[in-house]
Design a protein around this nucleic acid. Structure first.
Length: 578
DNA sequence: GCCGTTTTCGGCCCGACTGTTTTCAGTCG
């Protein structure tokens, strides 16, 4: 649904970047940036809007609407093309390096002719940046470090990006003649936090029409190789897609094989070998006679190996096979278990949708409760005030009952300052149903300071949830350095909930830290941190991450009924005496 | 370029931090 909107949003963002790189008016650039965000978070498909409808989107005026219309009609925007011709694409990539913005990117391009990240790295290491006005040795160091952070992503893309691509390709393959089934496998099906390439699996007797659907797809930029069972292409956005076609009767075996992980499969095959069997993408066979024992469904394959079906999100060889054998796999939390969201924003701060729209979208998800948690005043750019917050509370109270039986909770997202303190005095904090507290500044404090800061936030009796605890941004910002074992111990001791932030660019906590925190007996909340109604759909990424962290519904407080949740929020453990 | 209980011009998200400066520019949330 939102894919076209995201595409247009990306284009407007690019135009904004290009305006800044070419020394255009900063306010004009900001207009396009604002429009980009607004379009990306707009719930209606742009293709269904006329000029008037487009201009009704906040931040979209006549000029932006014309550009969108031009793009929808021709697939291009002349103004964007004109600027692209002036700025090599690598220069815009330079802007993505932390600590490098449009000014520095333009400077190195103009003065040194640097037009790729690699060239900038060379220049920084060779000391050639030191001669530029306003740049020194320290800047060069930061740039080198920034490039390292950027490269740790290793060309992988966000799960949301990969999923949108996979859905589109799979839909096209399903339309091909003779296609019986088609879905995606690989790390995308396991819902790893980032994806290196997309594996699409299809079932058909004749692969040719399916292959043609992929190689002829508008998203395909280059065919890397094509045979009867496997075809690989590079898409227009750089991501590789592998299509595998198996006979319908081997669907289950193929799905197990291509879902992985490699380590999970190795263990499955070893188990097969010990039982005198052989497991491949074509099925489970007797090792000697070659008779096929199972291949039609995943359940068949696992069952023939003496195992229950294991959810894809668990297939990482982290003990899931042993647990399955011992009957200790448990029931991972599912999207259906979630009864509400405890971290959402409205246009009172940096959200895009007004309160009523966010609540209506939450209600459509049939939630039992939702907490509205706009930013607190210490994040100065949000211009929060006591009066605004209290007015929102009144508005929320007035709306109570307007969305069926969905309970509206009033919360806030506090800012954890470098010492571990938060916005507002206790008497004001006491007025909220729920407080999320997050780090939004001072990301570079040393380990001891970050640890102390988070522990103190946990010890604050008014802080119920620590939001996006590591503050990482996948591929863009490293997690803060803290002794998370100590933080988890503090969270468990104080009854502070740790967030599994479902935003695909965060997924924070990630699966491994969830497992570590779980050992301490911590409770979790899977929250969307939605800044637009469409972001509520990100819940699935958070739930998948929780599954990968081996969480059951019971350990996730927003699967609890309202009464239980409210008792928990008011527990003496978290409240100061009196 | 967008927008209007400041309404067709003149503002626009504010403040901290960092590294380079000697009073400030760039970046970030």
């Amino acid at each position: 649904m939102a894919r076209l909107n995201d595409e247009v949003g990306a284009l407007l963002q690019e135009y904004s970047d290009l305006l800044l790189l070419t020394g255009g008016d900063a306010y004009r650039a900001r207009s396009y940036e604002k429009a980009a965000r607004s379009v990306g978070g707009h719930p209606e498909d742009l293709a269904r809007l006329d000029a008037e409808g487009l201009q009704a989107i906040p931040g979209v005026g006549r000029s932006t609407a014309e550009k969108i219309t031009e793009y929808l009609g021709t697939g291009r925007v002349a103004a964007v093309d004109a600027l692209r011709a002036k700025v090599p694409p690598g220069v815009r990539e330079i802007m993505a390096i932390p600590t490098v913005g449009p000014k520095k990117a333009a400077l190195v391009h103009r003065e040194l002719g640097v037009s790729t990240v690699d060239e900038l790295l060379d220049a920084a290491r060779a000391g050639r940046l030191d001669d530029l006005p306003g740049l020194g040795a320290r800047t060069a160091e930061n740039i080198v470090h920034g490039i390292e952070v950027l490269r740790q992503g290793g060309g992988r893309v966000l799960i949301s990006t990969a999923l949108a691509l996979a859905e589109e390709i799979a839909a096209a393959v399903r339309e091909a003649s003779g296609c019986e089934r088609c879905t995606w496998a690989g790390s995308l099906r396991r819902m790893r936090e980032t994806v290196g390439d997309v594996d699409v699996l299809a079932a058909a007797d004749d692969s040719a029409p399916l292959t043609a659907a992929l190689t002829g797809h508008p998203l395909t930029a280059e065919v890397l190789g094509s045979g009867t069972t496997k075809t690989s292409v590079r898409t227009t956005r750089g991501l590789q897609v592998d299509l595998r076609v198996v006979p319908a009767e081997d669907w289950g075996a193929g799905l197990v094989y291509f879902t992985g992980s490699k380590a999970h499969n190795v263990k499955l095959r070893a188990r097969a070998v010990r039982a005198g069997l052989k497991l491949s993408e074509y099925g489970l066979f007797e090792a000697d006679g070659g008779r096929k024992l199972a291949s039609r469904t995943e359940e068949d394959v696992y069952e023939a190996l003496g195992l229950p079906w294991i959810p894809p999100t668990l297939r990482e060889d982290r003990g899931e096979i042993e647990d399955a054998l011992n009957g200790e796999l448990g029931q991972p939390v599912t999207e259906q278990d979630v009864r509400g969201d405890l971290h959402t924003h409205t246009d009172l701060t940096d959200g895009l949708a007004p309160l009523e729209e966010m609540l209506a979208a939450a209600h459509r998800r049939r939630w039992s409760y939702v907490a509205v948690t706009d930013h607190a005043p210490n994040l100065a750019m949000q211009r929060m005030t006591d009066a605004k917050m209290l007015a929102q509370r009144e508005q929320l109270q007035a709306l109570q009952g307007s969305f069926g039986r969905m309970r509206l909770l009033h919360g806030t997202e506090l800012n954890i300052d470098p010492d571990g303190g938060v916005d507002w005095p206790p008497e004001f904090l006491a007025g909220f149903d729920l407080c999320v507290a997050s780090i939004h500044s001072a990301f570079t404090l040393d380990r001891a300071a970050q640890t102390r800061r988070l522990v103190r936030a946990c010890e604050n009796p008014y802080v119920h949830v620590i939001g996006h605890p590591t503050t990482r941004l996948l591929g863009r910002r490293a997690p803060i350095d803290a002794d998370f074992d100590e933080v988890f111990a503090a969270a468990a001791r104080t009854g502070t909930v740790l967030e599994v932030n479902a935003s695909p660019e965060r997924l924070d906590l990630g699966d491994e830290l969830i497992i570590a925190a779980h050992r301490h007996g911590v409770r979790f909340a899977v929250n969307t941190d939605a800044h637009a109604t469409v972001h509520l759909d990100n819940l699935r990424f958070g739930v998948a991450t929780a599954q990968r962290g081996r969480l059951a519904a019971e350990e996730v407080v927003n699967t609890w009924p309202l009464q239980k949740l409210r008792r928990f929020l008011k527990a003496d453990l978290k409240r100061a005496p009196g």
